[in-house]
Design a protein around this nucleic acid. Structure first.
Lengths: 118, 118
DNA sequence: CCGTTGCATAGACCTTTGTCAATCCGAGGG
DNA sequence: CCCTCGGATTGACAAAGGTCTATGCAACGG
């Protein structure tokens, strides 16, 4: 189980999936792990955030660039970004006073593999 | 907007997605539609249901085959199946006293397309 | 026609979650 | 050292969602 540092708290990252949903009947524990990953994406605000980040030149953006197009408060945006980081879908790098969030393409590959049908 | 009949109620089916999340910044309405689709998959019980259906020979199963491996009551299983049908991920066909639920592969294709990264 | 069997629906309960206002922390700049 | 600015954290609150029990409904067999 890998871990990642977010501020001072250390948060668990899901043990990656990588097998199609049809490969074998999912046991409850595995299903709960995958559901946590999918839940991170299954929110309109977070989809918009991912879309905005993916649309940038460098595939990364800071909070200040994201809060206005969404019309939400800064704490709310920070909260959603944390959810995405904890799920392994975004990375967070501090540069000066700003925090830059970047896409993790491999994590999206995992999701696509999971959702492939026989 | 297509509709589907589930018992007597007529339920909306999401207008399909089919463009990668990075294609253009998502407006709120589109994001909410896509989130509804993803939420249907983002639940451990429903992932197990999809896995069980996908694992069968004919890619379909009736409720009686699904309720026992999950250890949940029949109404709960029926509830989750309805959510998946409403999202367009499963179809429902009555054959005699049984209701058979089958995978909709195209809907999973939509999800994979949505989650592709640049 | 009545009973049984498989499934759907309704309602209640508790947990999870998205949002905000308020506050705190960290990095620079005078 | 203090002030400012970008972000993170906390706590509160309302809304959404998963599960159950109880009940309703359709199809079929005597």
């Amino acid at each position: 189980m890998t871990t990642v540092t977010q501020g001072l708290a250390v948060v668990d990252v899901q043990p990656v999936c990588c097998t199609p949903i049809s490969a074998a009947p999912l046991d409850r524990a595995t299903a709960e792990g995958l559901a946590r990953l999918l839940k991170a994406v299954a929110d309109p605000t977070r989809l918009q955030l991912l879309s905005l980040v993916a649309g940038t030149q460098a595939r990364e953006a800071c909070v200040c660039e994201l809060t206005e197009p969404l019309g939400l408060t800064q704490p709310t945006v920070s909260h959603h970004l944390k959810v995405l980081v904890d799920a392994g879908l975004l990375t967070r790098k501090r540069r000066g006073p700003w925090a830059y969030y970047g896409l993790v393409a491999e994590r999206f590959d995992d999701l696509r593999t999971l959702l492939s049908t026989p």
